[in-house]
Computed example of a mutant assay.
Amino acid sequence: MRRHRRPRAQQHGQGRPASRRIPQGTTQPRGRLHRHARQGEHTASHAAVADQLGKPLEPERWRGNIWLDGLPPWAEWDWIGRDIRIGAVTLRIQERIARCAHTAASPETGLRDADTLGALRDGWTHTDFGVYAAVMTGGRIALGDELEVL
């Protein structure tokens, strides 16, 4: 039986040069989540789209609130209708996020420089990336918290 690493929350921009990270105080990995819809994306899906395009992509294009690491691409879609727990927070995964042309624009220049929708369509016959989630139990999420599918 093959063992997989447990998925962990990842800080948005982690592994990027300091000049490209989100400034401290803008989006903190130790924030509180309140009862509002959130977006969840994960790094393997992002890497798959970048590979399909044949060039690196900034994760900021997807405007995700929570990024997960350690899962196969699109794994979060299997959780639709289910609850997950990260740290003290419980989220109910609601639906896939259909993406718009905004993701084709560079977060630095605002110019469209990557056909993200075309890459999704050509590689996987859809234009979805990430999932919407509702906060069922608010609390803290910290960098490195494990994800548990309930």
Rank of each mutant, 00 (worst) to 15 (best):
M1E: 08
M1A: 11
H4S: 12
R5Q: 07
R6W: 09
R6C: 07
R8E: 11
R8L: 13
Q11I: 10
Q11V: 13
H12W: 06
H12R: 11
G13S: 05
Q14C: 07
G15M: 09
P17A: 00
R20P: 00
P23Y: 00
Q24G: 10
Q28G: 05
R30D: 14
R32M: 09
L33H: 13
H34F: 08
H34Q: 06
H36K: 13
E41I: 06
S45L: 08
H46T: 03
V49A: 01
A50Y: 14
A50I: 13
Q52R: 15
L53Y: 04
K55Q: 15
R61F: 04
G64C: 06
G64A: 13
L68I: 11
G70W: 05
L71V: 09
L71Q: 02
P72E: 11
P73S: 00
W74A: 12
D78T: 03
W79G: 02
G81T: 06
G81I: 02
R82M: 12
R82D: 11
I84A: 15
R85Q: 15
I86T: 01
A88S: 14
T90L: 14
T90N: 13
R92T: 12
E95V: 03
I97L: 04
I97A: 01
A101G: 08
S106I: 03
E108V: 15
T109S: 14
G110I: 01
L111Q: 15
L111A: 15
G118F: 12
A119I: 05
L120C: 13
D122Q: 15
W124R: 15
W124S: 12
H126I: 00
D128Q: 09
D128I: 02
F129N: 05
V135I: 10
T137Q: 14
G138N: 04
R140C: 03
G144D: 06
E146H: 12
L147W: 05
E148W: 13
E148T: 14
V149N: 02
L150V: 10
